[in-house]
Computed example of a mutant assay.
Amino acid sequence: MWYPDSIMRIIGADSIITTLGSSHKYIKNMVFRLFGPENLRRDMIKDLQKTAEASLLSWLHHPSIELKEAASSGRKNVMKMLKEMMDERKKATGRQESIDFFDVLLEELKEEKHAMSENVALDLIFLLLFVSFETTASGITAILCFLSDNPKALQELTEEHDYIQKKRPDLNSEITWEEYKSMKFTSHVIHEALRLTNIAPVMFRKATEDVHIKGFAIPKG
């Protein structure tokens, strides 16, 4: 994987995408400590439901919804904000367990033989914020587009969620891990949409040598 300098200035020189081998594996496993199945089951699934419901409810009183692309105020401003948040978190006392990614990173930085610096930690947070916004929006857009063209799939998806709600003793109760795991068709819809659509805005490749394909010459570099 190769990225041009213009992209690296945004993502950061200490980003996980620049690491290889054991270092990359270590950082990836650390990310999964927060975003893996156990935390999803215990905490995140309820937070995701609350966020989704709040967003949808905010639309109810509007005759139409205008979707706008969010623009970053610049890497320097974002990194400054993240640094201030990390410094405040360092000063906090009485935190008994890791509750977000800042805590996971701070635990790592406290280790005597930690595998990352504070700059790497901040770049990692920035990268997660940067890539998750675009890919999540693109993924949801693709799913809605495919469902609008496939009414049978939309009907089956609706029936699956209606069935889950009807089984609840309380219709307003929060989603459970068991309900999430039972959404088989929902999972198929998501995976099929991701199979058919490239949600990454661009993938860069760099030729390590001159290449000739069907009469076209791709020079090294």
Rank of each mutant, 00 (worst) to 15 (best):
I7C: 06
I7T: 08
I7V: 13
I7M: 11
I10F: 00
G12A: 03
A13G: 07
S15V: 04
I17C: 11
I17H: 08
T18V: 13
H24M: 01
K25H: 07
Y26D: 05
I27S: 01
M30K: 15
G36L: 01
P37D: 08
R42W: 00
R42Y: 00
D43T: 07
D43S: 07
I45F: 00
D47P: 00
T51V: 12
A52N: 03
A54K: 12
W59A: 01
H61A: 04
A70P: 08
K76C: 15
L82R: 01
E84G: 08
M85A: 11
M86S: 11
K91S: 12
E97T: 02
D100N: 14
D103E: 03
V104L: 06
L105R: 00
K113A: 12
S117V: 03
E118R: 01
D123S: 11
L128V: 02
L129V: 03
T136N: 04
A137K: 11
G139Q: 14
A142T: 07
L144T: 09
C145G: 05
S148Q: 10
S148L: 15
D149C: 15
D149T: 12
D149I: 05
L157M: 04
E160I: 02
H161N: 10
Y163L: 15
I164P: 08
Q165Y: 10
K166D: 14
K167L: 14
R168D: 12
P169H: 14
W177G: 02
K181T: 08
S187M: 09
S187F: 06
S187N: 13
H191N: 13
L194E: 08
R195E: 06
R195S: 07
L196N: 09
L196V: 10
T197R: 14
N198P: 09
P201V: 06
M203S: 04
A207G: 07
T208E: 10
E209Y: 09
V211E: 01
V211S: 01
H212P: 01
F216W: 05
F216N: 04
F216I: 05
P219R: 07
